[in-house]
Design a protein around this nucleic acid. Sequence first.
RNA 1: CGGGGUGUGGCGCAAUCUGGUAGCGCGCUUGCAUGGGGUGCAAGAGGCUCCGGGUUCAAAUCCCGGCACCCCGACCA
Length: 479
Amino acid sequence: MSAHALPSPAEDFSAWYNDIVYRADMAAQSPVRGCIIIKPYGWEVWEGIKSALDRRFKALGVQNAYFPLLIPESYMRREAEHVEGFSPELAVVTVGGGKALEEPYVIRPTSETIIGEAFSQWIQSYRDLPFLINQWANVVRWELRTRPFLRTAEFLWQEGHTAHADHDDAEAFTLQILDVYADMAIREAAIPVIKGLKSDSERFAGALRTYTIEGMMGDKKALQCGTSHNLGQNFARVFDIQYLDASNQRQYCWTTSWGLSTRMVGAVIMAHGDEKGLRMPPRLAPIQVVIVPIFKTDDEKTAVMESVEALRAELTAAEVRAHVDARDYQPGYKFNDWEMRGVPVRLELGPRDVQSGSVVAARRDQPGKEGKRTLRREQIGAQIKLLLDEIQANMLALATAFRDANIIDVASYDELRQVVESGGFARGWWADSAVNERQIKEETGATHRCYPLDQPDGEGACFYSGAKTRRVALFAKAY
RNA sequence: CGGGGUGUGGCGCAAUCUGGUAGCGCGCUUGCAUGGGGUGCAAGAGGCUCCGGGUUCAAAUCCCGGCACCCCGACCA
């Protein structure tokens, strides 16, 4: 472990991020370019995200399945936009068992094609619809510029694939999934994401419409945290996914796909972290409560450790994820260490507390003395659960206030430039134009993030072109 | 894909310009003290200096060739 100080997120957010990922033991560098090793502390955050999503998917009737890692190269070529979108970043397997393969396999960058092929065989009747499948998998995209969790050459995600009888059902499901993503981000990760529709130039390769949840990170940049695509009938036509409707007519299905990845772990780090390190939202925190025993003599140690163990047992019984830090370090060292790792609550228990039947609690979301209080030992499990809920709510409130303070309405291009310059999301009337969007991106570095689903009434003049429009869009620099 | 940087004990670095026994901090091990906000002292363990070739009495250091990773930018669901 290095001894140098953590970079300040205010001064160099990027350096801070890179440093904290490794310092907090979320991940390690691997021998493979652009690929990280996800260490237990980072993995548990992903597991939390995963189980929160999986519950919600299953409640919608989605079933999990698993498809091969390798996809025949020809599959990727079938959908024109899809090929164009993905071919530059494909990893291809050309040799197997020492022999050149007759047809190379690509390592999946996403599975629309191979799942589409399967759907074409499985779906026959309108009675089979909707057909709802999800898989938890790893994918590979040969990205040129990688960052731990945010963009890695190999990453883990879930990809959902569904088939529906008509446009409206597919559209409704696409939006239902978007709600699931937003609900998970807000309630579990305490990140107040904005649900929105992507512009045509930001749309998924081959999709009719792409919806997104956009989060604001600590440096006021945007991060696309998950996407849900209505694929229309494009993939159904290409892979021949057809069904017989109630009047015995052959119809192409309407399909959707949707994904959320380990990037979300990066979002949690960047949305909540501060100059002391990570701040984990309690619901996703691998360790919710760390207990630091304090003692001098052996006699004290015996008494304290006995009390600490009883405390841990009570918390565990109350379904609080508690950890005892019995390492042979100074208490001060441990305090800083766990603050860096973002543990929401620290309990200090020493001889004085054993005597008085109390314990000192410190909140990670409130700095210094302000966050410290002495709790009675009675009903400690219930007290801590309440405290964790309070911290979760406070983190969401803080992030929401931060987001709202940094979404700024713009009425002109100059105003947008200023917002982009000083950081934040610029919101303004926008008359859809790929050309103008490109121009803004080249001149300011900001991209069209989305048309928020939550739109104002009426119409206004586009901040860029002046044309009348009924839609408001968000622009920001993004990861 | 462009630009920059770096490869030396587990980690972070020095020594490279000016060739001559590879050194420091952190971490690790052991002991004693210490312990309610990053402890102190002492003694230890640990190195084909990225790879290949060349120059030289002698290469971490100079020369040639390769490889790898990181950072910044463009690109990107």
